[in-house]
């Protein structure tokens, strides 16, 4: 991965130097060994701080929204899963594709930070990472550590659909094999939950939604959530006096409604980057919620994972006469 990091820095520096972009949105090393954080490089000097490690989990495409109505030229670094977010935002017409330079990174999977920190001292300094196909080798000032991908990757990476970005202007670094296991059922988790007893399922979600803090982190991180003002927060006089779809109160019933409404706002548009579940402070398995609709839509309407194809139309905005119907 050393080679990719160097190329990334060189390309970013080049783009900034030639003033083709005002800012390169990427990652830099975070405060501990297993953390990378979003980083906005605006100068050649800052470009040298960009990095690419198996801890670059954040989907950076969302940051493009910060500049959606000005014409600042930007560059953004994306992994395969994040790249679907680019298509999402282009389809939603949140920015013009030409205005953004997309730097694509073939990805061997992201490591589960928790698992890594069980072995590695957080204070260690990460010196180099080597992707050996089935394992990652982490070299730090406190020694070398090997991690079997099958054991230590994030679960979403083991189900990876596109480890090579579906859209990019510049591909950085060598091609790497997909971390997904062969013959993996992408929807195994959903299917497992579907087979459970309805009462069990009901308690399962009751338990999770009861914990929701309504912090809106899931919404804030989501590239499909690109409204100017969220419909849960619109403060139109009168609405709040009893005529809003949903109260802001933290209450299990209202939480249900919040998640289901959000679910339908992103249905057929959710790109399955998994960021919502990652950022949830109370670990609500949101991915299993969004992927339920994704799975049904794939089965019923042969929907591809949204964001795969820049030309596609969101499922819920289209209509075909041969759509299956259950009602009459």
């Amino acid at each position: 991965m050393k080679q990719a990091v160097e190329e990334l820095r060189r390309q970013a520096a080049g783009l900034l130097k030639e003033e083709r972009v005002k800012c390169v949105i990427g990652w830099t090393q975070g405060t501990d060994v297993a953390r990378a954080v979003p980083f906005f490089a605006t100068s050649v000097r800052q470009a040298a701080r960009l990095t690419w490690t198996p801890f670059c989990v954040n989907n950076l495409s969302k940051y493009l929204l910060n500049h959606r109505y000005d014409n600042t030229p930007l560059a953004v670094v994306v992994k395969g899963c994040d790249s679907r977010g680019i298509n999402r935002l282009v389809q939603d017409r949140q920015f013009v594709r030409e205005r953004v330079v997309v730097l694509g990174l073939p990805c061997g999977g992201m490591l589960d930070r928790e698992k890594v920190l069980r072995v590695v001292d957080p204070g260690a300094a990460l010196q180099e990472v080597e992707d050996r196909g089935s394992e990652y080798m982490l070299r730090t000032d406190k020694g070398e550590y090997g991690f079997e991908k099958r054991e230590a990757l994030l679960s979403k990476c083991l189900e990876c659909e596109h480890n090579i970005p579906v859209v990019s202007d510049l591909m950085i670094g060598p091609q790497v094999p997909s971390p997904a296991g062969s013959g993996i059922d992408r929807f195994a988790g959903v299917r497992e939950l579907e087979t459970r007893d309805p009462a069990v399922r009901s308690t399962f979600w009751d338990r999770h939604f009861a914990r929701c803090l309504r912090c809106y982190a899931c919404r804030n991180v989501c590239p499909a959530c690109n409204c100017k003002e969220c419909s849960f927060e619109q403060a139109v006089p009168g609405w709040q006096q009893g005529a809003c779809w949903l109260s802001k109160r933290n209450h299990p019933g209202q939480n249900y409604l919040f998640h289901l409404i959000r679910m339908f706002h992103v249905a057929g548009r959710c790109i399955d980057c998994g960021e919502c579940a990652r950022v949830c402070p109370v670990n609500i398995p949101l991915r299993e919620l969004y992927r339920k609709v994704m799975k049904d839509a794939e089965e019923l309407f042969a929907m591809k994972t949204p964001g795969t194809d820049p030309e596609e139309v969101p499922l819920l905005s289209t209509y075909r006469t041969d759509d299956p119907e259950e009602f009459s």
Binding site: V190, L193, E194, P198, A199, R201, S202, T203, F204, W205, D206, Y256, L260, M263, F264, A267, L289, K292, V293, D296, A297, L300, P324, E325, E326
Partner: peptide
């Protein structure tokens, strides 16, 4: 169809 399946999935009665 998506709605009814989802509602059942989160534990509502069919």
């Amino acid at each position: 169809m998506l709605v009814s399946r989802l509602l059942e999935y989160v534990g509502l009665e069919p």
